[in-house]
Amino acid sequence: MTVTLVRTAAPDDADRRRPVPAILALLLAGAAVLVLAAALSVAFGTRVVGWNDLVSAFTTDADGIAEAAVRQRIPRTLLAMLVGASLGVAGAVLQGLTRNPLADPMILGVTPGASLAVVSGIAFFGLSTATGYIWVAITGAALASAFVYGIGSLGRGGPTPLKLALSGAATTAAFTSLISAILLPRVDVLNSFRFWQVGGVGGATYTKLGQVLPFLIVGALICIACSRGLNSLALGDELATGLGERVMVIRVAAFVGAVTLCGAATAVAGPIAFVGLVVPHVCRLLIGVDHRWLLPSAAMVGALLLTVADVVGRVVARPSEIEVGIVTAIIGAPFFIYVVRKQKVRAL
């Protein structure tokens, strides 16, 4: 056995496969809630906007401050939904791929990898185009997570949650120092970087959406194409091979898909922690462990979580706002601890 991880809920894994009509009903209900959340996200924000202004923003050409604020919230909401969906799917794929319940873009070093790549790109190679950012971020994310996973899976027992989390934390610490070393002498880059670093969707524009959308679509398609393979992987490498799956091909493809999703999301919204961790767990509870249903539901719940977190961040700190990355970290860290406590962690 190479897998040392024991999920406490394992005994009822088999009957967590719900009937299809029930899943469809849940997905529909989720979609309805998501639409509601999107409406809330447009209606509520840092600036309090009356009903009349809200209506006139959509029906007239009026160009007051209220209307402008409302119109600005539309791309912001779309971006929050896209980023949340991407991170949710990426998290689900990474957890299935590594068979590790703590796998998350942040813990696997994807986010710091993307940050380091973007910062070095700006500082040393004069990187300035948005598409360039995305490519560089994806490359950095892929390299960093492959590195973390490689180190974490050395030795006995393969990639255990502890080894992965430690090598992720260590790599993050190392990358953070490198980022500071690059940034400190360059005050102008530092100033813009500190805003990127917290992770937010406030600066959304339609142009940004257009630039990141192709990457997200490609990543999502790859992930969806892998969903059946991920189901086989969940049975263990030997059994999956016995079922005729090409394990390595699935691994690499799913990895590329997930990294594309979270690299692109990070490039456009900055590092947003814990969404990729929390969402798949919630979805597994609701939908079951079949990746063909898990991935779409993770996209939906991820979009929902990020949209709601963004609204909360805008409303609680008026007249200022709390970036969505901070809200998700505050929600997500307790959840991470809960998952750790539920694991049967082996004594040293």
Partner: peptide, 8 residues
Amino acid sequence: VGTRLILI
């Protein structure tokens, strides 16, 4: 347990 403490 040491491992749990580190992860948390």
